[in-house]
Simulated assay, not measured.
Amino acid sequence: MAKTYVTAVIMAKDGCEAALEKELRKVIPEVRAEAGCLRYDLHRSGYGNTFLFYEIWESPAHLEAHGRSAHMAAMREATADLQACPTEVNLWDAVDAA
């Protein structure tokens, strides 16, 4: 199966940046321990209100399992009122530049 590359962009409501970052950080160790997780990194924009998860999964099936995990459901619930808009999730294909 092909690796699955993902970006997830999360924007904080004004004044909720620190609380949102705290909740997003909580899930990182659990996700990194999931079967099939090759990379799960959190980034914050220079403006401070937008966060980006960059993810690499061994397969689409591993990504699907990740989305159904209890810790992701808890994170979605904990961050719902902190977000300015819905999370933007994109799947990517690697481009062989060789």
Rank of each mutant, 00 (worst) to 15 (best):
V27Q: 01
S59D: 03
A65W: 03
C85G: 10
L24F: 11
E17R: 04
A80T: 08
A12I: 07
D14M: 06
R68I: 04
S69T: 11
A84R: 00
A61M: 05
L24E: 07
E21C: 11
R44N: 10
E21T: 13
E30A: 09
A61W: 03
A70D: 09
L38T: 04
A18I: 06
A84Q: 01
V27P: 00
I28S: 01
A61L: 11
G15D: 15
H43W: 12
S69I: 08
E30N: 09
V31A: 13
M75K: 12
A65M: 08
R32L: 13
A73N: 09
E77P: 13
T50E: 04
C37A: 14
E34P: 06
E64D: 15
D41W: 11
A19S: 15
R68A: 12
D41E: 15
L20M: 08
A35V: 12
E55Y: 05
G15I: 15
F51G: 01
E77W: 03
A18Q: 08
D81V: 11
Y54H: 06
E55F: 04
I28H: 01
E34I: 04
G67D: 01
L24Y: 07
A74D: 06
M75C: 14
S69W: 10
L38Q: 03
A61P: 04
G67E: 02
K26S: 14
L82M: 13
I28G: 00
H71S: 06
A61F: 08
S45G: 09
L82D: 08
M11Q: 09
K13M: 06
R76P: 01
A65I: 05
A12M: 03
H71D: 06
T79H: 06
G46F: 11
Y40M: 10
Q83M: 12
P29A: 02
M72I: 13
A74M: 08
Q83L: 10
G67M: 04
E17Q: 09
A78T: 14
W57L: 07
K22A: 14
G36R: 05
L42G: 00
L38R: 02
